[in-house]
């Protein structure tokens, strides 16, 4: 059974429709990428899963249960965690406080110390800066903090919007490796990426979103060798 599913979901902002019937399914323990051009609706799709945008029609299912109408905080409490685009940190709080905020869901509190060690292990820089205000850090450091805050929630599904944005390529590769390790512990990861090549190289399964519709899906390797994808996204 899929851990996270969208069934024929439409959504948008105000009068403007962005998603035109999206259906997808994430299997537990998979690392999945959602790729597409700028403006394809990737961020809207994540916001709709999370409940920041209400689905206009269709259903979002988490662990087989219809969660379409739940507010975001209730989804976070169940283990559906978003690392949003633009980081959305608590800029007036310290690094440590941001991580504590990440551990707000009850199910994550018992694991607080373990998760803290895990994220400091992944991002030693954050440990050095734990008492610094988040808003005063560099873009790359803020991005690390955003991912770390997501991990603090003990996610079942971790959705990351534009992981690679503003990060040095070396660090992005490191992050992908860390995420693979997370996946190997059973966490399902959904990566939303503009860096199509990299995303397809590290994930198990991929969806290509175009103009609010899933255009192509399949194992990432197969998607990467799809001629349409190569032409449109990989510049081959």
């Amino acid at each position: 059974m899929a851990i996270l599913e969208m069934r024929d979901v439409t959504s948008g902002y105000g009068e403007v429709q962005i998603l035109w019937g999206v259906t997808l399914a994430l299997q537990k323990g998979q690392m999945v990428s959602l790729v597409g051009a700028n403006g394809a609706g990737k961020t809207t799709l994540l916001r709709t899963i999370m409940g920041l945008n209400r689905p206009w029609s269709g259903q979002v299912l988490f662990e087989g249960e219809d969660v379409s109408k739940l507010p975001p905080h209730a989804k976070a409490a169940r283990g559906l965690v978003l690392v949003p685009e633009g980081r959305q940190l608590f800029t007036n709080m310290t690094v440590q406080e941001n991580l504590e905020m990440g551990a707000s869901p009850k199910r994550s509190r018992a694991d607080f110390q373990r998760n803290l060690e895990l994220v400091f292990d992944m991002f030693p820089r954050l440990k050095d800066r734990r008492n610094q205000k988040a808003g005063t850090m560099s873009g790359g450091e803020q991005q690390m903090l955003a991912v770390a805050r997501g991990i603090m929630a003990s996610p079942k599904v971790l959705m990351i919007d534009e992981l690679s944005l503003g990060l040095a390529p070396v660090l992005v590769l490191q992050l992908f490796e860390s995420l693979k390790k997370l996946r190997d512990t059973g966490i399902t990861v959904l990566l939303v990426e503009q860096n199509v090549k990299m995303a397809l190289a590290v994930t198990d399964y991929a969806y290509v979103l175009s103009e609010g519709r899933i255009e192509i899906e399949g194992p990432s390797k197969a998607v990467a060798s799809n001629p349409d994808v190569q032409k449109a996204y990989l510049g081959l």
């Binding site: 999370m50 976070a76 709080m93």
Partner: peptide, 12 residues
């Protein structure tokens, strides 16, 4: 600080 961010980390 950021109401949307608070919601997504689980704050009602």
């Amino acid at each position: 600080d950021n109401r949307d961010a608070a919601e997504i980390v689980g704050v009602p």
